[in-house]
Every structure is written in structure tokens, then in C-alpha cells.
Amino acid sequence: MQTIDFHRRADELAPAVLGAVLWRGPIGLRLTEVEAYLGPDDPASHAYRGPRGRAVTMYGAPGRLYVFRSYGVHFAANFVCSPAGQASAILLRAAEVVGGAELARERRAVARQGRDLPATRLASGPGNLGRVLGLSMADDGAPLGEEFHLEPPARPAAIARGPRVGISVAVDWPLRFWIAGDPTVSPYRRSPRAIGGNLPGNKDGALL
């Protein structure tokens, strides 16, 4: 039974899912880095302009996956949060593979020499995480608790926060959360199209 309450807004819930393990079949991913997107209140969110196109899933019931194709190549996963109609979501950015490591390496090897990758890089970055999970657009809207199962964190973790990666608007909002010091966390990359400067100290993160 799913025990994490997804009716909370994404920025409130994001720290609570760090350390949780997302299972799909034999693949288990301990979430180490996520980003919050705040629906129509957030110009960087796919839901900013309302429930149309790929954003429709975000406006639906919470506790489901929102899957989108990134750069026309990779599939990225989000948890839909908040009551239906509010459209906040948590992007899954990085994870530690804790189950199904061989299958994870096989899936990464489709695109590159996955068997040569260190374990910490297998599911680091949204596209890599999606590939390890075997995501496709058929998974958009899938409810947690069925094919995808989320185990709450076993213990609290030291969590840091800072600006989100690669977006061009709302670039300084500190809505990226990660487990401090975890080697699977992806590097911070500021988009060359970003408008405005960083808030002081956010690049390396501030502990919560």
C-alpha cells in the first residue's frame, strides 16, 4: 500500500521522496535527486499554460507518473503531486540502482557501453533513470502502487537544495533537492539560455 501522501505540493513533498525506492519489476531505484515543478505558478513547468498537450496528466489525480520525451530522445519520469487540477510534479533526476543491476546495465548498453559505466552513473540524470526503468510514453499516467511501487525512505537523509538544472526561466528558484554527498547525484549545469543570476550559495546547495 502506498504510504506517501501525494496530495502535498511538489516543493513540500520533494524532500520526503529522497531515499525512497521506486520499483518496476526487478529494477529498484533509490531516489537521490529530484526537482519540484509548481504547475501554473511556475513558468518552467510544462503545466504553466494549462491542461493541454503533454501537461494533461499533470492536472490529473496525484500519485501517478507523468512521463515525457526529453529532447525527442529520452523518457523522463515525474510524480504528479497536489490535488487534481493543481498540476505540481516532482521530476526524478538521479537514483542509485539497488535492484536489477544487470538489467539496468543492459538497458544502458543499448545506447552506449553501459557495462563499462560505474554503478553510480547508471541512473544519474533524468534520461538515464528513465532508460533504466524501461520507460515509454505508454507509462504516462501509470498509478503508483501497481506496476510501479514506491517504498518510503528507510531512514532520514541529509538533504541539500539549490537551483534546477538546464532550464531557461525561473532559474534561481531553489527547487532541486538531493541527498548531500551522494555519488549518484548529477552535476549542476546552468542553461546557456538562462535569464538572470544565481542566488548566492545555491550552486553547491544549502543543507535543509
Rank of each mutant, 00 (worst) to 15 (best):
Y71G: 10
P156F: 04
N78M: 03
A20W: 00
I167A: 02
P83E: 14
P200H: 09
V73M: 12
P163W: 03
R190Y: 01
A206I: 10
G145S: 06
K203L: 13
W178L: 05
R107E: 08
E12V: 11
R190D: 02
G60S: 12
G50D: 03
I167C: 01
P200D: 15
A157Y: 10
L150Y: 08
L92T: 10
S82L: 13
E33Q: 02
R93D: 02
G19E: 14
S136K: 09
G25Y: 01
Y48K: 13
P40T: 00
A10K: 09
L150Q: 11
R107L: 09
S45E: 00
D41H: 13
A157I: 10
A104H: 11
R131F: 07
P118V: 12
G196R: 13
F177I: 08
Q113I: 11
F177M: 05
A61F: 07
S136W: 07
E12W: 04
D5L: 13
P62A: 07
L133A: 02
G197E: 15
G201M: 08
R105D: 08
A170S: 12
A95Q: 04
G141E: 01
I179K: 00
R107V: 15
N198I: 06
V171L: 14
A84E: 14
V17D: 15
L18Q: 04
L29M: 15
Y37C: 09
P183Q: 11
E106T: 06
N78T: 01
P118W: 06
G53Q: 07
Y66Q: 09
R24M: 01
A76I: 04
R164C: 14
A104F: 08
A55C: 03
L18P: 04
D172L: 06
G130V: 05
G100S: 04
F79D: 02
A95T: 06
I195M: 12
E146K: 11
H149F: 09
R176H: 01
H149Y: 06
P163D: 00
E102W: 12
T3W: 07
A160Y: 02
I90V: 10
L144H: 06
A119L: 07
Y188T: 00
R121I: 02
E33L: 02
H74D: 06
D139Q: 11
E102K: 14
A206E: 08
W178Q: 05
L129H: 04
A157F: 12
G72K: 09
R193M: 12
D139I: 07
A109W: 12
R8I: 08
S186E: 01
W23A: 07
F75D: 07
A111E: 15
V73F: 02
G145A: 14
D42V: 00
Y66S: 12
H74L: 09
A89H: 05
G127S: 08
I167E: 01
S88H: 08
V97K: 10
Q113H: 13
A154C: 15
M58D: 14
Y59S: 11
I195N: 09
E147G: 15
A44P: 09
P43A: 15
G39L: 03
P51K: 01
A61I: 08
G134F: 07
H46W: 05
V169Y: 02
G196L: 15
G166T: 04
D139N: 12
W178R: 02
R190V: 05
V21C: 05
A206P: 00
T3S: 11
L150T: 10
A180W: 04
V80D: 13
P192E: 11
G130Y: 03
Y71A: 05
E102Y: 13
D140M: 15
M137Q: 05
